[in-house]
Write a protein that binds this DNA or RNA. Structure first.
Lengths: 211, 211
DNA sequence: GCATATCAATACGTTTGCGTCTCGGATCGT
DNA sequence: ACGATCCGAGACGCAAACGTATTGATATGC
């Protein structure tokens, strides 16, 4: 899965096998180097040194720097992050607050802004990151929001994807772009309460007479 | 302003003066190269070639690549962008829609995601960009929102900065991060209508019994 | 007219980093 | 035991790009 299968057919598993732990060590080192320094500051020498392996060991598994980063980003996957809040509102707050906390503490949070520019030149990189990291987290929001619709807390015809944008957008904006000063832990509840109010199941009378 | 004044006192304006048009040509070429390729793909040779000047002409004005990019980004400034919409709601829609359109057409829009990662390593760069480009646009939102408060369309105790985040956040999020597929021109009105609904001056009964 | 500073073009030294290769040693199957 | 493959360490060739220096031409002040 990670590297290239090198058995051409006849001679299978000849000689010393690859150490599986090194795959994880290389990918982890790649993420750490990527977190501080970004894609261009990431050098194969730095990854090799941090992982405690030789460069040849990396090139034996990955064709080059680009594929290494792509695989490393994809390996981020989805953390468990079990939100067992009681109600829809509190679960949304917990999910949003997780974004705020993770954005400057976790590896994924530090890597995120780097990928925004690297992804512009490397669509494959951005796609993998979106599928492996962003989409699973997004699905969590959608699931909770769906419960909100079922409980008549949200409009029945609500576009759930759009609702996620309304919630995550301001939080991501504050953390990525307008991150001075950094938002406090009260921001999540503030956003959720306001957005829930906007998406509450009330007659949309303001749409009938749009100015 | 742009380069370094080189007259130490005695000999003033001796020899051929610098061509002022070249300053603008260099900065403009820097922005164009920065727009496609990003900070690291930006080479002095490329800037010189695109501006039609020699490298020495650039180094005569800017100490190095870093300062060149900082000055170029700061030179973006604020476009006029006169929004003369009739009401508060329509002006907000126009401002938000401008963000969406600019994010993939204008120079500033293309440069923005590049700066997010470059700014992580270069705080000065991000600070100048924020002051010169982001803050002026933000002030426009605040001005319109203040009118909304005056017209009793928004809560009297509204945090205007937070309100801007609620509006700009989802739009920026859709354009920068979740830009597949790209949002359509109807998104701006959708966001504004929903956020205005959330921030309308109604008794905040849901805050009294939080949980 | 002459010194001085600018101009475009370009050669130059230096640094950096990718990807390959070599080396001695370690670890597997047979 | 033996060959094959992996391992860490690092030398190597190569290319890219920064910043400087040079060259011949051009423009300005005195």
């Amino acid at each position: 899965m990670t590297g290239t299968a090198q058995c051409p057919g006849g001679s299978r598993q000849l000689g010393r096998p690859r150490d599986p732990k090194l795959d994880a060590a290389i990918l982890d080192a790649t993420l750490r180097v990527l977190a501080d320094g970004g894609y261009t500051a990431l050098t194969m020498e730095a990854v090799a040194a941090l992982a405690g392996v030789g460069k040849a060991t990396i090139y034996r598994r990955f064709p080059g720097k680009e594929q290494l980063v792509v695989e490393a980003v994809a390996s981020l996957g989805e953390p468990p992050e079990p939100v067992r809040g009681a109600g829809v509102r509190d679960e949304l707050v917990a999910l949003l607050e997780a974004i705020r906390r993770k954005s400057d503490s976790s590896l994924a949070g530090k890597i995120f802004p780097r990928l925004l520019s690297a992804g512009a030149d490397n669509p494959e990189l951005m796609r993998r990151y979106r599928e492996q990291v962003l989409d699973p987290r997004r699905a969590r929001f959608v699931a909770v929001l769906q419960r909100g619709v079922d409980e008549r807390l949200l409009r029945a015809d609500l576009d759930l994807g759009y609702a996620v944008d309304l919630l995550v957008g301001p939080m991501a904006y504050r953390n990525l772009i307008r991150n001075d000063p950094r938002p406090g832990p009260e921001l999540a509840a503030r956003i959720v309460d306001d957005i829930l109010l906007a998406l509450a199941p009330r007659p949309a009378h303001h749409l009938l007479e749009q100015s």
